[in-house]
Amino acid sequence: MFEAKLQQGGLLKKILESVKDLVVDGLWDCDGAAITLQGMDSSHVALVEMLLRAEAFEHYRCDRNVTLGMNHNHLSKILKCANNDDIVILKAADQNPDSCSLILESKNGEKTSDFVVSLVRIDTDQLGIPETEYSAHVKMSSGEFQRICRDLSQFGDAVQITCSKQDVKFSSSGETGKANITLTHSATVDKEEESVTVDLKEPVDLTFALRFLNLFTKATPISDTVTLSLSQEAPLVVEYKIGDSGHIRYFLAPKIQE
C-alpha cells in the first residue's frame, strides 16, 4: 500500500496552489524514496516538476510504485478544508487505484475529516529534461521576484532578462513605454534571503512570457529564495526549494526573434 503522513498540511496546500493553475491534471508518481509530479501547461510552453522526498513526511510507506492521476481542482477543494497545522494522511491501494484517501487530523486530535478523491486517467507526454550547464544563475528573494513579475506585467506581456557580470536586468515594454528593473549582486550578505547573487559564465539575454512567470510565483510561500537558471536559446528554470526535502522547478520556453 501507499501511505504518507505529513505533519504540516500547510505544505501540501502550498504545493498544490503552486501547480494547480498551470497543470489541471497531474500524475503523482510515488515510489519508496519520494513523490514526484511532472506536468505541462496545455500549450506545452511551461512545465512544472515537483519532488518531495520521503524525509518530508512523518511516516512514509510505499510498497510498490504507484501513480496517482490527480485532478488538482478536486484535490484543492479537499485541502481548502485543511488548516495549515492539520496533519494530512494520503492513502492509496497498490495496484491501479481508482481513488485516493485523504485524512485530515487537527493538531489537538479532536477533529478528523476524511475524503476520497476519484483519480483520473491522464494521457500525457512525460519529457526527459537533460542535465544542462547553465550560463547564469541568479539567486534572489522570492518575494522580490514575484514583485518584479507583477510590476512589469503592467507594461508588457513579456520580460527580457539580461545578465551581465554584476547585475540582472528585467525589462518590459509596450504601449505605455519601457520599464527596466536592475538588481545588483549584493556586496555584503546580511540576510541570505534578501541578497542577490549573480553567478555568470556567459552573458545571457532572453525573453519570456510574463503570464507564465506570474503563475510560477504562486510558489513564493514555499521558499524565501528563488533561483533562476538561464542559457541562451534554452528554457529558463525557476526553482523553489522545499526545505531540504525537495523542490518545485518550473521550465519556460523562451520567445525567440522571428
Binding site: 510552453v45 519529457l127 526527459g128 521550465f251 525567440i256
Partner: peptide, 14 residues
C-alpha cells in the same frame, strides 16, 4: 516580433 517556442522543441518526449 518574437515567437513563443514550445518546450518540446528543447526537451524530448520520453
Amino acid at each position: 516580433g518574437r515567437k513563443q517556442t514550445a518546450l518540446t522543441s528543447f526537451f524530448k518526449k520520453m
